[in-house]
Structure formats: structure tokens, C-alpha cells
Amino acid sequence: MNDNPNKRYHLTRLYEYVGKEAGPVKEMVGIFVNSTPEILNDMANAMEAQDFEIIYKTAHILKPSLHIFGIDDMYNPVREIEQLAKKKEDINTIHLLTAQLQLRMEIVIQQLRDDFEIH
């Protein structure tokens, strides 16, 4: 694991759940980096179809994971996506926030893959 100053995540909260032992931590990181792209993909598809319900559900699922992995700058945007989608309003803002989320998550997931040597 490197000490990249541009690191977009921190694992303090994850350690509280699973401890600092390398095995379980890597296992959780693996689950996160493998399952999140699929959720983001579902969200992107739902954006195209303007399916508020799926947008809401995917944002709802992502929210706790972002919190656990310390991706704090994306927590509030996802929360906003979730709330707007629930109310089925302001698709433009949702669009903007989703695009921002997709970009940021690509970076974080890559960082995690590199740091934990998950390929």
C-alpha cells in the first residue's frame, strides 16, 4: 500500500469494522472494487432511461460504502442524488452529480486496486 498524497479514500472506518489485519481488509476492498463498477453501471443506464427508481436504489446502496471507505467528498453528492431521485425531480442536477461520481469513483477504485494489488 503506498502513501499517495492524492489518495481519495481512507480506511479508518473500515478498520473499525474488520480490524487492521491484512486478510479481511483486502477481502472487503476486493468486494468493494468488484461490486461498485456494476452498481455505477446500473446507475448510468438508469440515467439514460431516466429511471428514477433505479437511480434512487443504486445511490442508496452506494452511500454506506462511500462512508465506510472514507470517500467523504462524494458522500453528500450521492445523498443528493438519492434524495432528488426519490422525489423524481431535477434530472439535470442528478445528471451532473452522477457524472462527477462516475469520474471520481474510477479514480478511487483504481487507487484501491493499485494499493491492494487487486487486478
Binding site: Y17, V18, S35, P64, I68
Partner: peptide
């Protein structure tokens, strides 16, 4: 829990 990460994490934590 349908969130795979959250579910696994809780499972791991409670299995301690």
C-alpha cells in the same frame, strides 16, 4: 442486506 460490501462487513464484524 443487498449491499454486498456492507453485508460482508457486518458479517465479518459480528463473526468476531
Amino acid at each position: 442486506e443487498d449491499d454486498p460490501l456492507y453485508g460482508e462487513m457486518l458479517k465479518h464484524h459480528l463473526s468476531l
